[in-house]
Design a protein around this nucleic acid. Structure first.
Ligand SMILES: Nc1ccn([C@H]2C[C@H](O)[C@@H](COP(=O)(O)OP(=O)(O)OP(=O)(O)O)O2)c(=O)n1
Ligand SMILES: [Mg+2]
Ligand SMILES: [Mg+2]
Length: 926
DNA sequence: ATCCTCCCCTAC
DNA sequence: TAAGGTAGGGGAGGAT
């Protein structure tokens, strides 16, 4: 202390040093009144007040047995250096309001470190309390107390002193928040700076305590109740909310990581594309790695003393705070993620809560992925704490796979002090389910058969894809609770009960069938920003003000992700009729969710446009501002999605104009932006000849009228909408004008009639009016678009619809898939086998049209890629196989079906050939 | 038959 | 007090 006072003299900010001196004395007296301080140790701390370079590190001869925090001095120095004349100003400011400048951290006891949180509003203080990045000049800064984790471990901050609390000052990162005591100068207390869960005490308490050499009782110094009284409404702020939201973190992490590890993931995709598996005896070897109770484990590293106790991660230690994750001791008592603290407490009264440590979650996640990428080439990022690995490309057998997994799990534990579990099996689905069986801190390889037999006993809920609702539906309607119950039903029975899609899903998952490949490079299809928390408004203006923030956030994310979108969706949650204030603090309670969307003419990432659209959409929703419980914005139809192909289509038309220079007159009518223009590209529109523009506009206006007639009284709820649209349906309907007469383009007409799809979006009359060259250009564009759509679908169907037919008979979809995936390296024999088995298994009888569709898609794909010989082989093969089967069977029905199939294939192929201008003769194909 | 809009479900 | 987000799959029902 003596040493300290000497240093004090060196501190320009005398008050800071004095206060430091005082608070340390208080603690010395209180915690160690008799203790002799013979030993001298060094306690470093930083006080940011210096004129020289912003940093002083006075040494204080008091006890500090553990390492103490040294603030990132580089940062501070830089911050101050950049300000130049700043210090002169600061000096006078400090002189003027000397009491108002400091926020100090105190000591819990002397063996703990001290973090000194100095500074007033608006300036960086040694990295400890920092305004979040952006607007450092404005009033509205966000402060986060940041404490280095190495310190946090042994650091219990007990007292925070300040005369000035930033309005959104938060100390959530500390061990437990409700112990804090804020020592404030009442005069400086602003209403907005109060945090209702804390006790506030006048600064006089400190002075008196020092005089008496002991900590005095607090009651007398407690600040008046009206000052600490709660504010009526809080209205969470979007940025602050996102900073605290665990769901925001885990929801945005996948694409964040994808961006960071793009190189690795591209290489992974390349390996998959080459398809050179080296595993023997298995179709695939897939590993799934998932961290054990991730948030809980990471947070617990800061509290080694809590080992062995039931621990949950939550913002609050009671009430309606969500549990994000909990350790396995707590799970034994039934505590689960997503549960509220109050219910968890009932199950487990001695549950301990630890606060979130978002930075560490991100850091550990990185460490884990670095380990995975270090050892593996094909990794798919699933979430903040899990990944799939395709080991088929680097392990010959399961033993090698497990050896690699062991190594990686060891590395993970060594480098992060957190454990992971892993499952290895023959496909993605089973790998994931085996992981669950192996938790916590375990690993396992199971053959497909073993995995399935073990999983039979698990509840249906353990199947990924079966959640709350489906579990309930299965139980209530069919008394199905376990996977084995699903296995008792055949595929056709399941499809009968649950329709094609769901029935098939249940069939496949219950049997452990899954032939998806890893997808390491996901393409974003939408961008969402949502906040369903903290909305309590009185006036529409407040809602609109939130839209401002919302659209800014959305726009900034779009720009960050480098995408623009065409469709803007407003999402709104409205208090349900009769629902009172929800039991979750600032929560939504019972609500009706609704959404409204608008399609723009152009791709946008512009905040104003988004804001404007949101406000417009909001007007169409009938809601009182007091009932708004959740607001969100989502952007769809992004320009990264199929963008190349779509721009090609545009280019086709634009090129036409460029080449032929037929841009005679132009108009400015493009300023007219009704909804129905959304399907058009304004750039193209602007370049159209004048008369054509007029014509297009006419059609557009007509559409508008129709829309208005039927659209006006819509509301959000499905029931209402239904009845309303019934009541409007007797109004005169469109049809009359769009009735087609005769199209000059027989080709186009036929396409539209037969194909629908891309072709049906265009108005025949308009087409008719176009110059013939342009017609040709458009038809070409339509054709391209059509192929694209088909191809997209084809990809989906290959994996979803083909699967069922291989089901109990083994994995013979491979044949079709190889042919489809890579026409040049096809194995026709396998393909032939696949077809043969489709026929012999009887599948083909029930799915004749699907089969034809499938075959035609493959042929079309080959033709589109100009793989004529490939198309020809497939065409012939199908005919041969059906013929062969026809001869070999006595089943008349099957014969009929086979005939039909062959016929259809011939017809479709012929029309395909015409489409590709390959002539009429099927022999030319060969 | 397919598109479009709105909605529900699921995983983390 | 508390921070109930994000993204994708898929279905219903009306429109085209
Ligand atoms: N409802 C949920 C589910 C998950 N998470 C977060 C916390 C989890 O730690 C993390 C990872 O989710 P997991 O499903 O992998 O769960 P854990 O890792 O916590 O436990 P397990 O050992 O079962 O994987 O995501 C969350 O905040 N809220
Ligand atoms: Mg986990
Ligand atoms: Mg996980």
């Amino acid at each position: 202390l003596t040493g300290f006072s000497e240093y004090s003299a060196n501190l320009h900010d005398h008050n800071t040093s004095l206060s430091l001196y005082n608070i340390i004395r208080v603690h010395l007296n209180f915690f160690h009144p008799q203790q002799e301080m013979k030993e001298t140790r060094t306690l470093n701390f930083t006080a940011v007040s210096s004129m020289s370079n912003g940093i002083l590190q006075p040494q204080l001869e008091v006890s500090a047995s553990k390492d103490v925090n040294v603030l990132p001095s580089g940062q501070t120095a830089a911050a101050f250096a950049s300000r130049g004349h700043y210090f002169h100003e600061k000096q006078s400011k400090l002189d003027k309001n000397y009491k108002k400048n400091a926020i100090y951290g105190g000591l819990d006891n002397l063996s703990d470190a001290i973090n000194v949180l100095t500074e007033q509003h608006g300036n960086v203080a040694g990295g400890d309390i920092a305004p979040s990045a952006q607007d450092s000049n404005t009033q509205h800064q966000h402060y986060h107390v940041y404490i280095d984790t190495s310190v946090q471990r042994s650091f219990h901050l007990k007292h925070l002193m300040s005369s000035v609390f930033p309005s959104n000052f938060s100390i959530h990162q500390f061990y437990t928040t409700n112990k804090y005591l804020f020592i404030c100068d009442t005069s400086a207390l602003s209403k907005s700076s109060l945090q209702r869960n804390r006790k506030y005490v006048d600064v006089q308490w400190l002075h008196d305590s020092m005089r008496e050499h002991r900590l005095l009782p607090l009651d007398k110094y407690a600040l008046k109740r009206e000052l600490t009284k709660k504010r009526v409404s809080h209205n969470a702020n979007l940025n602050e909310f996102m900073a605290q939201s665990r769901l925001h973190l885990i929801g945005s992490w996948k694409y964040e990581m994808t961006k960071i590890y793009l190189d690795h993931l591209e290489r992974a995709a390349e390996v998959l594309r080459k398809g050179k598996k080296i595993c023997i005896g298995y179709d695939s070897l897939i590993a799934h790695v998932d961290m054990d109770c991730f948030f809980a484990m990471v947070s617990l590293r800061n509290y080694p003393e809590l080992k062995g106790k039931p621990v949950a991660v939550s913002h609050s230690s009671s009430g309606s705070g969500d549990i994000s994750s909990c350790n396995y001791i707590a799970r034994e008592r039934g505590v689960k993620a997503g549960m509220w603290m109050s219910s968890a407490r009932k199950l487990c009264p001695n549950l301990v809560t630890v606060p979130y440590d978002f930075e560490s979650y991100k850091k550990v996640s990185h460490q884990v992925y670095q380990i995975l990428f270090r050892h593996c080439s094909v990794v798919q990022i699933v979430s903040i704490d899990e990944a799939y690995i395709d080991l088929s490309y680097q392990c010959k057998n399961d033993a090698e796979a497990m050896e690699l997994i062991t190594k990686m799990r060891e590395d993970i534990e060594k480098e992060t002090q957190c454990t992971a579990s892993a499952g290895v099996c023959e496909n993605i689905l089973l790998a994931r389910m085996v992981t669950k069986l192996s938790k916590p801190n375990g690993q396992q390889f199971l053959t497909k058969g073993n995995a399935i037999s073990q999983l039979r006993m698990e509840p249906v809920r353990s199947i990924p894809g079966i959640g709350r609702a489906l579990q309930r539906k299965l139980k209530q309607n069919h008394n199905i609770t376990h996977i084995r119950d699903l296995c008792d039903l055949s595929r056709s029975e399941l499809i009968q009960l649950f329709k094609e899609q769901l029935g098939d899903m249940l069939y496949r998952t219950s049997r452990g069938i899954d032939n998806r490949t890893l997808d390491p490079l996901p393409v974003r299809k939408s961008v969402h920003v949502e906040m369903n928390y903290g909305h309590r408004y009185k006036h529409h203006e407040e809602v609109l003000a939130f839209f401002k923030k919302l659209s800014e956030e959305t726009s900034s994310r779009l720009r960050e992700y480098k995408v623009k979108g065409k469709q803007i969706v407003l999402k709104l949650k409205k208090r349900q009729q009769g629902a009172g204030e929800p039991s979750k603090y600032m929560g939504t309670g019972r609500v009706d969710s609704m959404s409204k969307s608008e399609s723009l003419a152009d791709f946008t990432d512009n905040a104003e446009i988004i804001h404007h659209t949101l406000c417009q959409l909001y007007e169409t929703i009938d809601v009182h501002p007091t009932d708004v419980r959740g607001l969100g914005c989502s952007i769809q139809q992004l320009d990264n999605y199929l963008c190349q192909d779509e721009s090609n289509i545009h280019h086709t038309i634009l090129k036409y104009f460029e080449k032929n220079d037929q841009l005679s007159k132009r108009t400015n009518v493009a300023e007219y932006h009704p909804q129905s223009m959304s399907q058009m590209d304004t750039n193209v529109f602007k370049q159209l000849p004048y008369n054509l523009q007029q014509e297009v506009l006419q059609v557009v206006k007509h559409k508008e009228q129709i829309k208005k007639g039927s659209n006006a009284p819509k509301t959000g709820s499905r029931k209402k909408r239904k009845s309303l649209s019934n009541s409007t349906s007797n109004q005169p309907r469109k049809k009359q004008k769009l009735e087609a007469k005769q199209y000059p383009l027989a080709y186009y007409e036929k396409k539209k009639a037969i194909e629908g799809g891309a072709y049906s979006q265009y108005d025949a009359q308009t087409m008719q009016e176009l110059p013939s060259k342009m017609q040709a250009a458009i038809v070409q564009a339509l054709h391209q678009k059509d192929i694209l759509q088909k191809r997209k679908k084809r990809i989906q169907e290959t994996y979803e619809d083909v699967n069922p037919l291989n089901s109990p008979h083994g994995m013979h979809e491979e044949g079709l898939c190889t042919l489809f995936d890579d026409g040049t390296e096809k194995d026709l024999r396998e393909c032939r086998n696949a077809i043969e088995r489709m026929i012999t298994s009887g599948w083909i009888v029930k799915n004749a049209s699907l089969f034809v569709e499938l075959v035609m898609q493959f042929i079309r794909a080959q033709l589109a890629d100009l793989m004529l010989d490939c198309a020809s082989s497939l065409y012939q093969m199908v005919l041969e196989e059906t013929k062969k089967a026809h001869e070999n069977t006595k089943d008349a029905y099957l014969k009929d079906q086979l005939d039909l199939i062959a016929q259809k294939v011939v017809i479709h192929t012929r029309s395909l050939m015409r489409e590709y201008c390959l002539g009429d003769d099927l022999e030319t194909l060969s």
